[in-house]
Nucleic acid binder design. Sequence first.
DNA 1: ACCTGAACACCGTTCAAGT
DNA 2: ACCTGAACACCGTTCAAGT
Lengths: 228, 228
Amino acid sequence: MVATTPPSTRREPLTRDRVLRVAIDRADEGGVEALSMRPLAQELGVVPMALYKHVANKDQLLDAMVDAVMGEVNEAVSRVDAGSPAWQPTIRARILAARNVFLSHPWAPGLMVSRTTMTPAVVQYVDGLVGLFLDAGYSIDLTHHALHALGSRALGFTQELYDDSGEADAQAEQMLEQMAAAYPNITAMVAGIVHDADTTLGWCDDQVEFEFALDLLLDGLAALRARS
Amino acid sequence: MVATTPPSTRREPLTRDRVLRVAIDRADEGGVEALSMRPLAQELGVVPMALYKHVANKDQLLDAMVDAVMGEVNEAVSRVDAGSPAWQPTIRARILAARNVFLSHPWAPGLMVSRTTMTPAVVQYVDGLVGLFLDAGYSIDLTHHALHALGSRALGFTQELYDDSGEADAQAEQMLEQMAAAYPNITAMVAGIVHDADTTLGWCDDQVEFEFALDLLLDGLAALRARS
DNA sequence: ACCTGAACACCGTTCAAGT
DNA sequence: ACCTGAACACCGTTCAAGT
């Protein structure tokens, strides 16, 4: 047999980082609501109570997970800032880079809106974004309004309310037909969009919708800046 | 003693409506995460399992609660439609009326974004809103984009990410001072807004921010409609 | 001093035993 | 047939007993 690490140190020591890493992996796979302390400990080959040496409680674990994802966002954003001189494309690119990170951690947005404490990495990200607005000549007031108007979109995600991106299966179509009488407008809209669809992605593309809304807001804000 | 309802029928019978009503009351007071089946049953003077005669499980109870709130919204909206002929003020008024309802059920937004099933009252509300856009001459495509761009704001709420409406207490101010070096932009923004504040509400007013963002979006959409 | 198993105080829900 | 208590399979976390 090949010489590996000696048996006594085979089980790599439990660190806060390792706890965070597998917690995030588990959340990526099964969602955050399926993440509980006991199975997490088991996956780490450790007794449940051992986790409490590295995180005070589950709440702090969740905060740390969010912070780690925002750390990824900050790293991704720093790679993207090859500095176009125009402020609007810069902000746009930064937000879309952030969005890319959230696409691989779909549980993170839900966690972020439910949590009230702002972690350091979030503060860092927002500080950078505020800096871009101020550098672009936005007043402090307008920058503040912009942050609220963008809402979670400033961080790079939206909480889609109801999933309308799924392909229309037989059951849904039948239900739609029954709804036609009671809800004529929504039925017309769905029918019209399905008909016009030029992709096979279903009848709406999250990326397109995100960019549409983002540009609508950034254009509107730019007009307000120019006017002031 | 005064003749009241006879003792045998004193305890009014448990109905689905009564379950919903006190469930919503409890959520209004303590938040939805503090709502559990056992205490809910106790408040209703009933054994926990009795609830399961009226709701299949807790998930269905939560869906029904959301539907009830959206019912309130639809009712409020119907009272507001004293029909201005212009589409934009009409949509604006409708959304602000919806928002008013959510202000007294602060747990509802969080529940709505976490749930994937669209209840009848939601469909009804969205159908009405889509109707307004279509009547205003919006194309089906633009209406669909509008719905996505407005997001939860179309329903009358935003999930505020981090609460910055609190008054700056001593601890927060001290922390802010320590942050000034690391996060100059955000510090400048907070300082600037606190200084300019013309209200005692703290340094931002949710209602004002909501209307600002709503108008920004509706104005932008109106421009797109005019151009097409 | 450190680690850990059992225990505590909860959950939502099943199910069999009572009426 | 209907109602319901006890029980089941989980939670997060405390704590005292082991080393």
